[in-house]
Amino acid sequence: MRFSQRIGQTPVNKEIQLEYVDEELTNGLWNLVKMLFIDKLAKYADYGKSDFDKFSEILWHNFYKMPIDTIPEYKSSVEKYIRERFFNFYWYEIYDFLEFIIEIQNNQGEKNKFINSVNGILEREFAGYRIINEKVAPISNQLEFEEVSFALDKTKFLTALEGANIHLTNAIDLISDKKNPNYRNSVKESISAVESTCRIITGENTLGKALNKLESKGLNLNNQLKSGFDKIYAYTNDKDNGIRHAIVTAPIEPDFADAKYMLISCSSFINYLITKAEKIGIKFE
C-alpha cells in the first residue's frame, strides 16, 4: 500500500472495471503490448520482410481490415499509428486487440509471459476480466480465476474428461463475446461440463442419475451440496426455461450474472469431483 493510501488521501481500491477501461489500465496494457510484443519484433531483416513488417501486414489485413498498401512507409510511423489506434479504441476493442496479439504469437513461452503480465495488470487495476484459455473472460478476482483455470487444466490433460473441457471452453467463449454474448448457451455448456464429468465417473447417461450414483462409486458428497446441484440441474432442465430444451413459451432469459455464476460454480464442482475421485483411486486416463 502506498503512503497516500495509508493516510487516506487516495483510495485503496477502485471500482471493478466492467464496461470501461480507465486511463491507468489503458496505459498499463499498452506498456505490456509495447515492451513484451512490439519491441521484441525484429525491425529489419537481411532478406525479405522483417518480423515487424509481417506483423504490420497481418494487423492491417486481419484486425484493422484495411488495405495493406495504406501501411505507413516508415516503421516509426507504423508504430505511432498502432499506438494512436490503441488509445482511441472502445473498451472492448482493447480486449479484442489483446486477444489478437495472443493469438498470433508463436513462441509459447513469450505468449505465457505476456498473458501472465496482462493478468497482473488486470488484477492491479481492478478490471472485471482475466485472460483464461487465451480469451478475455469476465472473471473479477483471483479465486474465480483459479477455479476456472484449474478446471480447464485438469480436464484438458485428463483424456477421459476431454468432453468436459470442450463444454467449459464453449461456456467461456459464449460469455466472453463482448459484442454478442450468449448467456443462455453459456449456462447450458457449463452444466454440460458437470454432466460430462459425472457421467465419466459413474457410467450413467444423465446428470440426474449420475449425481445419485456418485456415492455408490465411493464419492461421499455432503447432502446439502448434492441437493444444491440437483436443484441447479433442475433449473437448467426446466422446460419453461428453455436452457436444455426447445423454447416453447417466453422464458426468463439468463443474464450475465447467471452465466458467470454457472461458469464458476460448475468449474468449482468439477474440481471438487476430480479431487474426490482421484483421492479414492478413480483414474481418468
Rank of each mutant, 00 (worst) to 15 (best):
94 I>A: 14
76 S>E: 12
24 E>N: 09
85 R>L: 07
40 K>I: 06
52 F>K: 04
78 V>C: 07
40 K>H: 05
67 P>F: 04
57 E>G: 01
38 I>C: 13
30 W>R: 02
42 A>G: 10
74 Y>M: 13
48 G>P: 08
68 I>M: 11
66 M>L: 03
58 I>C: 03
58 I>G: 01
33 V>K: 00
85 R>S: 09
50 S>L: 06
80 K>M: 14
97 F>N: 00
85 R>W: 09
81 Y>R: 14
70 T>W: 10
81 Y>E: 12
74 Y>R: 12
49 K>L: 13
49 K>Q: 09
55 F>W: 08
40 K>D: 11
35 M>I: 11
68 I>V: 15
24 E>T: 08
60 W>N: 05
66 M>G: 01
24 E>F: 06
24 E>D: 13
39 D>E: 14
55 F>K: 04
45 A>Q: 02
50 S>K: 09
60 W>G: 03
77 S>E: 12
73 E>K: 13
96 D>S: 13
35 M>H: 14
29 L>Y: 03
86 F>G: 06
93 E>Y: 08
49 K>R: 14
81 Y>L: 11
61 H>G: 02
28 G>W: 02
91 W>R: 09
80 K>G: 06
45 A>F: 08
86 F>C: 11
32 L>T: 09
80 K>D: 10
41 L>A: 12
52 F>S: 00
72 P>K: 07
83 R>G: 03
70 T>D: 04
43 K>V: 12
90 Y>R: 15
97 F>A: 08
35 M>R: 14
69 D>I: 02
99 E>H: 03
27 N>D: 15
77 S>P: 05
64 Y>D: 07
77 S>I: 02
99 E>I: 00
72 P>S: 05
67 P>V: 08
45 A>M: 01
91 W>C: 00
76 S>F: 06
24 E>G: 14
78 V>S: 03
71 I>W: 12
53 D>A: 12
73 E>Q: 12
45 A>W: 00
34 K>A: 10
88 N>V: 06
57 E>M: 14
93 E>G: 14
46 D>A: 13
89 F>H: 01
75 K>P: 13
92 Y>L: 03
45 A>K: 02
49 K>T: 10
63 F>V: 02
76 S>N: 05
95 Y>W: 15
90 Y>H: 10
56 S>Y: 04
65 K>L: 07
72 P>D: 14
39 D>R: 11
58 I>L: 15
95 Y>S: 00
82 I>N: 02
44 Y>V: 13
80 K>E: 13
89 F>G: 04
56 S>I: 07
83 R>A: 06
97 F>H: 00
67 P>R: 13
91 W>G: 04
93 E>N: 06
58 I>V: 15
36 L>Q: 11
70 T>N: 10
79 E>Q: 07
28 G>Q: 04
96 D>I: 00
91 W>M: 04
50 S>A: 01
62 N>K: 06
53 D>W: 08
82 I>M: 11
87 F>A: 03
60 W>P: 03
78 V>I: 05
38 I>P: 04
29 L>W: 00
25 L>T: 13
85 R>G: 04
58 I>A: 09
44 Y>K: 12
75 K>I: 10
31 N>W: 13
52 F>Y: 08
